[in-house]
Amino acid sequence: MTHVFPLLAVRGLHKAYRQHQLTVPVLHGVDLDVYNGDFLCILGASGSGKSTLLHLMGTLDQPDQGSVLLDGERIDNAPGPRRDKLRNATFGFIFQFYHLLPELTALENVLVPPMIEASILGWFWQGSAYRKRATELLERVGLGHRLHHKPRELSGGEMQRVAIARALMGQPRVLFADEPTGNLDEEKGEEIVGLLRDLNRRDALTMIMVTHNRDLVAPTDRVVRLVKGRVEGASTPPAEQPTVLEMPRRMAL
């Protein structure tokens, strides 16, 4: 199901975190192509840089070196408003800790992306349409009966479903899932992944899932293994080798 032209292309991505005067390299030269309709699993142990890669692809963070391209357009160094807009409408995010806003109900949480986008006037104009769509999405993830509950009144699985509905609200082209099952038991986790697969299959939604759990990977998925900041088997030489001194510190973190 691959296309010639990648939807998202990652080229020679380097990223290091600076803590005081110490530089902690995380990614050293990652190349990756994501095609429309992919279900891409990024596997790796903790500390392998898989979350960082996801953040860089989702424009939440900026690389030290290398580029991220969406439909051939560089987005990693795009101006702030452009990247805000991308996160709002083109990308959807699901996190391990759900990251719902505790003051808002399930429905309101799902409505946050269009609220961010719309002006007050626009909201009065289109609010009811958004509300309808948010309700439909919550019904689709099986939470039609939980619309007006606050996150603290929901279970972990339910919260993750709300997060999925929120991610879908902006009709994204790519859905990033960062350890979506990390905080759930096996059964709930499988339900969530099943939901994501369903979205991928039925809506041809491109899915990039980061996980350390091999059991979640299906035979049809594209799998990329990330080891110590490099894609396993990739031949790109790292631009910057971690020093012997720095490595243990990195692992300790």
């Binding site: 989702g58 939440l60 702030g80 408003p81 805000d84 807009k85 991308l86 996160r87 709002n88 409408a89 995010f93 996190f95 990251h99 719902l100 806003l101 505790p102 946050v112 992306p113 961010i116 986008e117 929120r166 902006g170």
Partner: peptide, 16 residues
């Protein structure tokens, strides 16, 4: 702090 991160991840701008 975390909520601010969430809002930014969902596309909220700095000025927002």
């Amino acid at each position: 702090t975390r909520d601010i991160g969430i809002l930014k991840a969902l596309g909220a701008s700095n000025s927002g």
